[in-house]
Design a protein around this nucleic acid. Structure first.
Length: 354
DNA sequence: TAGACGTGGCA
DNA sequence: TTGCCAAGTCT
């Protein structure tokens, strides 16, 4: 950053902050600066679109209006409220961190980067967002939007997919951030990235900082930021089983409390690559043929793809694994299921397999 | 550092 | 249909 370049800082700040104040969206988490509400919204917004988050946020704040309410909640209820949002470890970490704040900080979200960032689930971005939005502290909050905007404004060539690139942007922001209104500045940067300075076809003609943008000046806004490609997701083949009993119940299993979809419920499933696709016999007493259904689910995660075949069978109520449960249709709404399982269950209900 | 960790929308 | 994304963090 040359001294000459720093000359653009004051007008960049003013243009951005003024634009933000005039054009910012009315979002439910923008109604107050309450640190807990800001915190919840930032966790939900990680890798998740605003439109998706809004109804989840409203419901979450109704269910857990205070940090004490969240600290005391049962994990199954947490997961049910988070059901469908994805990245489920977020809500466990949030509860764990909220408990720490309630117990160690007398229910006051701390005000230093070191303390906030040490909370579970709070990384460099979220720490900066909480400190700037709730407490008006001049801390950078570097997310994907911010790196895209800054890459263009300053023609930064660093690959924004690389972890260390975030630090480059933070260093710039410690100088660039508006010390008078860090909240509007940080949110303005993100709002600009979301509404104007978008990944493809940015709306430069509407941009409040066009005059300060080096990429625009050079006609390079379409080439920046640099971002390396992700690797392809691997396909995992699974069998799922609708196991019904003579008294009208069926089996669901709770997933392990770590790893993928931790703690959520599902139909019994076996991975196919091992030659034990029908290893059901180890866990259940099957009292009928195992009938393959003409129905498949293909579910795409960020790092893998599930291809699930569905089978139906009758089982006795005698033997059942620790993690399994016999339930009735009407009780399904009490359990949290990932989307892949909702697809299977919807089919089962429509075909009256359950 | 790179991979794990979800979901829905859009070109 | 496929790929990429959207306010990241943890290991």
């Amino acid at each position: 950053m040359t001294e000459l370049n720093k000359g653009v800082f004051p007008s960049f700040q003013q243009n951005l902050v003024q634009w933000y104040k005039e054009h910012k969206r009315e979002l439910p988490w923008r109604l107050s600066q309450d640190p807990y509400r800001v915190w919840v919204s930032e966790i939900m917004l990680q890798q998740t679109r605003v439109d998706t988050v809004i109804p989840y946020y409203e419901r979450f704040m109704r269910e857990f209006p205070s940090m004490e309410d969240l600290a005391e909640a049962e994990e199954d209820r947490l997961l049910k409220v988070w059901e469908g949002l994805g990245y489920y470890s977020r809500v466990r970490n949030l509860q764990s961190a909220v408990r720490e704040v309630v117990e160690e900080y007398a229910s006051q979200v701390p005000r230093t980067r070191k303390q906030v960032e040490s909370l579970k689930g709070v990384g460099p971005y979220t720490a900066g967002a909480i400190l700037s939005i709730a407490y008006d502290l001049p801390e950078p909050a570097v997310d994907g939007n911010v790196m895209r905007v800054l890459s263009r404004v300053f023609c930064i060539e660093a690959d924004i997919a690389k972890p260390k690139t975030r630090k480059i942007h933070e260093e710039i922001l410690y100088e660039l951030i508006d010390k008078q209104d860090p909240s509007s500045f940080n949110q303005g940067l993100m709002e600009l990235g979301a509404l104007i300075c978008t990944p493809t076809s940015p709306g430069c003609l509407l941009c409040p900082v066009r005059e300060q943008c080096q990429a625009y000046e050079m006609g390079r806004q379409g080439d920046l930021p640099i971002k390396s490609k992700k690797k392809k997701a691997k396909v995992v083949k699974l069998n799922a089983f609708v196991l019904t009993t003579s008294d009208g119940r069926f089996v669901i299993e709770k997933r392990p409390n770590t790893g993928l979809l931790a703690g959520l419920w599902q139909l019994p499933m076996t991975q196919i690559d091992a030659e034990e696709s029908h290893s059901l016999a180890n866990s259940y007493v099957v009292e009928s043929d195992i009938v393959k259904q003409s129905f498949q689910v293909r579910h795409v995660f960020s790092h893998l793809i599930w291809e699930i075949d569905l089978y139906a069978a009758k089982v006795s109520t005698n033997e059942i694994p620790e993690t399994a449960k016999f339930v009735e249709r009407k009780d399904l709404e009490g359990y949290a299921f990932p989307v892949s399982q909702q697809k299977l269950l919807t089919y089962c209900l429509e075909e009256e397999l359950l």
